[in-house]
């Protein structure tokens, strides 16, 4: 299988003296047409991975080492301004919080047609037509009416549908979904997950799916990466990972997840011993990196 995206030994840190490391030689690849999951606790560096792919590294941080290849060409050297052709067209983003991701003072129509006019060079009228068909594709009834509304007039689930429609508008090669269902309740979450999966397979898009919820990841991803401390600890096909996790940390995460079908199980938080142990590995990596990048 051809890889759409490959991240090799990516090192990102905040450029202080000594640097604060965020990604410590992270490796990740996404095959064509795959949904690849990235799970981990908060602070593991999940969102940073997506930011680096998009070129939106936060101020003060930079890429120290490693490479990102997108569709065969190296993009890690390009800065944000020199790859606008990618963002919004080839690589798009479904954000976590549908409440804040849409512009509150613009109608849905303007926000949807914006990308269509900019990247597909459609005329405004055609763009609106395309927006209508996109909205019906994400199962919004009465799309003409919704286009005239402002974001605050839509429910959370509806807004997430609009954002999904925007993400798939230009038939991107890669969609990055960062916790797209965390703000939704379980029943809406299930609908949205089903929708994302359908859109992904009908558009033949590859996808990076970021979440801290192992349950969600198990249902939608083909391959799952488990992340901690800026490193990818385990990469496996979803069925293998959930039936036989190999890394102790993955096992710990699974036993910390509550399950309604297993009342007898006491939940175990990731143990302090494991955290200290992994902390040591990270510390020794940091020392090596400091010696390397900061002399």
């Amino acid at each position: 299988m051809k890889n759409i995206l490959e991240i090799r030994d990516l090192i990102v840190g905040i450029d202080s003296i000594p640097p604060t490391w965020i990604l410590r030689e992270a490796n990740l690849s996404i095959g064509e047409g795959q949904i690849v999951g990235l799970v981990g606790e908060s602070g593991a560096g999940k969102t940073m991975v997506s930011r680096v792919i998009l070129g939106f590294t936060p101020e003060g941080s930079r890429v120290f080492g490693g490479e990102i290849h997108f569709c065969g060409s190296k993009i890690s050297d390009l800065n944000r301004d020199s790859r606008p052709f990618l963002l919004g067209k080839e690589v798009t983003y479904i954000p976590q919080n549908p409440m804040t991701a849409l512009n509150p003072v613009q109608r849905i129509n303007d926000q949807m047609t914006d990308v269509l006019i900019r990247y597909l060079q459609l005329k405004p009228r055609d763009a609106t037509k395309r927006a209508v068909s996109l909205l019906s594709e994400v199962q919004i009834h009465d799309p003409e009416k919704v286009l005239k509304l402002y974001p605050h007039q839509l429910s959370g689930g509806m807004r997430q549908r609009v954002l999904i429609a925007i993400a798939f508008a230009c038939n991107p090669s890669l969609v990055i979904a960062d916790e797209p269902t965390t703000a939704l309740d379980v029943t809406v979450q299930k609908e949205i997950l089903g929708l994302i999966k359908r859109m992904q397979s009908s558009h033949g898009t590859s996808m990076l799916f970021i979440s801290h919820d192992l349950g969600v990841v198990s249902k939608i991803c083909d391959v799952v990466n488990v992340m901690y401390g800026g490193q990818v600890l385990e990469t496996q096909e979803a069925d293998a990972l959930f039936s036989a996790p190999s890394h102790v940390y993955t096992k710990a995460l699974l036993s910390a997840t509550p399950r309604y079908d297993r009342p007898g199980d006491l939940l175990e938080p990731v143990s302090d011993r494991l955290v200290t142990e992994m902390g040591k590995t990270i510390l020794s990596w940091d020392k090596r990196a400091e010696a390397c990048f900061y002399k």
Binding site: V186, L193, G194, K197, K219, F242, L254, R259, Y260, D261
Partner: peptide, 15 residues
């Protein structure tokens, strides 16, 4: 509607 952490490729379609 609760996704259990188990591999189940048919779960999404059931709804």
């Amino acid at each position: 509607a609760i996704p259990l952490p188990e591999y189940d490729p048919t779960w999404l379609d059931r709804e």
